[in-house]
Design a protein around this nucleic acid. Structure first.
Lengths: 119, 119
DNA sequence: CTTTCATATGAGCAAATGTTCATGTGTTTA
DNA sequence: TAAACACATGAACATTTGCTCATATGAAAG
């Protein structure tokens, strides 16, 4: 018989110990959601391009749009999202809004991704 | 007057030089899409949880589902996606399919994300 | 060989996402 | 002050995404 309360896979043995141990090692749910939300920012090619551009130089919205060949509106929507995630900041400079990376983690995260993609 | 061919923002000066320089520094489009697709894998909390679990220990599908309290079907669908992205591999072991991280970059990418999230 | 357990998979659906289009806000310049 | 420019934003729409439900596959145990 099998009176294992924490019945897993019908397996008679070792599994549940490991499962319990791993369960306790997991981060808080909040942390997991925050993490996923963070990576979501890097998971869209438009946002990715914006961040790549800003890794090279701060730049106004209009230049970003022109450089990437994406509509000003689309860029602006994405910038809003990136700002909400604290990845990008901006300042006004005359008529322009100059955007720049707000966090050095952006660079290290993208670099880690690149080293995976480039074999 | 303004005979700047690469007219940007109506700006009379320095912008376009920088824009051109940055444009040349951008990765290939293919690379950008691959990168975004990679990060997309980390941008869902279910997949995030799966990877966290597998960072601690390899584990069969059924245990992962049980541990996370997510349906076997949902886990299985996500595992398929993660395998396509070469982030996870698996081997058969009797009745079970044991899953494990296929790439050490997973750890470093998640760690970079964590250090952002945890201030 | 039939059943059972572990996993995979397709269809269907609801929610989230990203774009465009039209228009609003704010700043500079004529 | 009016026009022009830079940017933001809301609504509408098409796509993508992730889940559930039902069912298929495949190994193992009886």
């Amino acid at each position: 018989m099998d009176d294992n309360l924490d019945l897993v896979c019908e397996d008679p043995g070792s599994h549940s110990d490991v499962v319990e141990k791993v369960r306790r090692s997991l981060p808080e749910d909040d942390t997991l959601y925050e993490l996923a939300d963070l990576f979501k920012m890097f998971g869209d090619s438009t946002r990715m391009k914006i961040m790549f551009v800003l890794m090279e130089s701060e730049m106004c919205v209009c230049d970003i749009a022109e450089l990437l060949g994406i509509s000003q509106s689309a860029i602006s929507h994405q910038l809003r999202i990136l700002k909400q995630s604290k990845l990008i900041s901006s300042r006004r400079e005359g008529k322009n809004i100059v955007c720049f990376l707000a966090d050095d983690h952006v660079r290290s995260i993208i670099d880690q991704g690149l080293s995976h993609v480039l074999e």
